[in-house]
Design a protein around this nucleic acid. Structure first.
Lengths: 212, 212
DNA sequence: CTTAACATACCGACCAGTTTGTACGTTAAA
DNA sequence: TTTAACGTACAAACTGGTCGGTATGTTAAG
């Protein structure tokens, strides 16, 4: 006799099917780009049929939007927003996040999923663009808030503009991902991260370097 | 009677045909990406037939490689390498180049062609990747050489590593292009450039700010 | 005359999306 | 409690169009 769990995984489980579809679609899009991603490839990776996919998503575009809103947003939440809520000196938190960014060969090859989709789709599809822009804005606002917190704590230089500095950091991180992607070399990535960390340190108020 | 020019444009002119094909292909690839670019679109833009195109390029890939080697390499030469050969303080030259980067809405929408192709194709096609990597390396080496020149002139800080700093600058420039691309806002671009320029200034040796 | 530089018609593969059918699950009336 | 009705969640075969590429013919150039 089958347990309840076995029944659920062996037979219909729409929530799970949808999630598996999204995950596989995310991986395929991350590898091949949205235009290059094949529905059949996603289907083959999940052993789900076309009828099921189009039951859950009304088009390839809708699937793409869901990837941004559900998968990428969550990745970004886990890697940036949540760590930024912790305590500790803002600059130290940022250094920790940047150093902890995924740097396996696979990650370097494919680079940041947010960046990939932005490059490919934002000039082609306004629906994509607005969704991607929202993530970037949340990212920027999060970093800016953290910098402001540091300013009021007296650990971050007062003269810098938090919004602009946050934006600048994001540009560095994404640019570094691009360079490492062409080079396909972890060394390039690491050197870039070291330079970003060095720059982050320069944001601290002098004399406060060795605290926390 | 027809002038020499009319004869050349009205009848066969393989060099010109090839060049027009390349230019149109570049524009189309810049807009839609390599995978998204349609051969028929390129043909329509040039009033050239498929037979002519496949006479000059043996495949879509070969056309893509030629775009990198001929069009993008030249753009990059004109915008970076040549200006960097001029005289003047290295940092000032770099600031001038960065400020002079194209910032029309169209350029911001489509971003840097080198970055676009890198993001899309370097994980998918090794032939593309190596060609793109060569351009990035030439870029980096050029900037590094300029920084070294500044160091020997005493206008650039001695403690910085020219290769790493060059790479870092490139990452900033490309990252900034990405941010402006999602935002589709010239303001975002300009703020980023201002921050890059500020960072470039910080590379000068103190006390030498107001020379040249 | 030979060859390079085209032009035109066509092919086959691919691929997003549709159609049609089926089995499971839920609900509610009897 | 049974069962009939109905909606959800799939399965599988098919379609219409697109797109890269080719085969073959034609014309200009040397």
């Amino acid at each position: 006799m089958l347990s309840d769990h076995e029944k659920k995984t062996r037979f219909r489980d729409p929530k799970r099917t949808r999630k598996r579809l999204l995950q596989a679609a995310f991986r395929e899009v991350h590898r091949s780009g949205f235009q290059g991603a094949g529905i059949d490839t996603i289907l083959a990776a999940t052993n789900v049929t076309k009828g099921a996919l189009y039951h859950h998503f009304e088009s390839k575009e809708a699937l793409g939007y869901a990837i941004v809103e559900e998968i990428i947003a969550k990745l970004f939440q886990d890697r940036w927003l949540t760590p930024m809520l912790g305590d500790g000196q803002p600059i130290n938190i940022l250094i920790g996040i940047v150093r902890g960014l995924p740097s396996r060969p696979k990650d370097i090859r494919n680079s940041c999923p947010l960046l990939n989709l932005t490059q490919e789709m934002s000039p082609l599809d306004e629906q994509f663009r607005t969704r991607l822009e929202m993530l970037f804005l949340a990212w920027q606002k999060g970093v800016a808030a953290l910098l402001r917190k540091g300013q009021s704590q007296g650990t971050v230089r007062r003269e810098l503009n938090p919004d602009e500095t946050a934006s600048f950091l994001i540009a560095m991180v994404e640019g570094n991902a691009s360079l490492a992607k062409v080079a396909q070399d972890a060394k390039v990535w690491e050197v870039g991260i070291r330079n970003i960390v060095g720059w982050l340190r320069s944001l601290r108020v002098p004399g406060n370097h060795r605290r926390g």
